[in-house]
Design a protein around this nucleic acid. Sequence first.
DNA 1: AAGAGCGTCAACCGCCAACTC
DNA 2: TGAGTTGGCGGTTGACGCTCT
Length: 269
Amino acid sequence: MDQQFSWGDGAEGWRKGPWTTEEDKFLIEYVGLHGERRWSSVSRFSGKNQVNSRSLNVGLSYTGDNLLTYHVNSGLNRNGKSCRLRWVNYLRPDLKKGKITPQEENVILEQHSKFGNRWSTIARSLPGRTDNEIKNYWRTHFKDNGKASLAQSEKSAIRLLKRQQFRWQQQQQQQQQNQVDAEKFMSLSDETAKRVAPPVREEISFSSPKSTEEQHLLNSMFHGVDYVPEPSTENILWGGLWNFDDVHAELDSMCAPSRAIVQTQTTFC
DNA sequence: AAGAGCGTCAACCGCCAACTC
DNA sequence: TGAGTTGGCGGTTGACGCTCT
C-alpha cells in the first residue's frame, strides 16, 4: 500500500497510482447508484457508508521537511477518466478474468486482420474482455513475432511451457489436498450438522479481484448469485500457443505430456 | 547468488469526437 | 454556433514477479 505515496497526487490534486480496495468499493457503490456515467462527479459523491468513504481520501504527502501532511476529503479523489478506466477494465461485473482461450485468441487474430489496432472494436467481439486486455495480449504474444528470431521464440516457448507445467503440478497437488480435506469434512459433517447453526453467509473481504474466483465473488455481490467456480481454462491456452509452425522437435517432445493435459481438460470442459 | 532480461498487466497520457450549455 | 466539458480510444509507461545467465 505504500506504493500510493510514491505515485503521489496529480498536478490538479487527483490521486494517482494503484487503486485501493476501499476506493474500488466506493466506485462500485457509486456505479450501483448512478450507473456508468458522469464519471467526473464520482469525486464529489459521498457514499452511504460515510465513515468508510471518508477514509478513502486520507492521504499522506511529503512536504520536504520530513513532515507528512495528513489530509481528509469527502468523495473519491480520483479524476473521472481514472474512475471510468478502473470500472471498465477491472470492476465491471461482466468481466471475464483469466487467460485468453485459444478460441478467443483466434477471434483476436481474425478481428485484428480486419480492423487493425482498433482494440475497442475487437473487444466487442469478445464479451467480457476489455480493449486494454486485448491490447496487452496482442503486444505480448503477436506484435514482435515477425521480428523475433526463432531462437528467441523457442526460448520463450520453453520458458512458458516450464512455467505452465509447474503451475499444473501445483494445481494437481492443490486438488489432491482439497479432495483430502473434502473427505475429512464429509466424515465430520454428519456429526456436526446437528450442532451447527444455520449456514451464515461468509462476509466477503473486499479486495481487488485479482483472480477469476474473486471476480465471480464480485459478480455474486452484484447479482445476488452464488459463485460456482468454473473449470480452469488456463491449460487449454497452450493448444493455441503451440500452433506456431516452427516450434522445434525438442519442444514437441516436451509438449507431449502437456498436450495430454490439454486433452483431459478439454474433455472436462 | 545476484543481476539482467523478459512477460504481464494496471494505469496514465494525449488526442479527438460527442455532448452540453 | 462556438467554447467548454466529458467520455472513448489507442499508445505508452512503470512496477512486479519470474526465469535465465
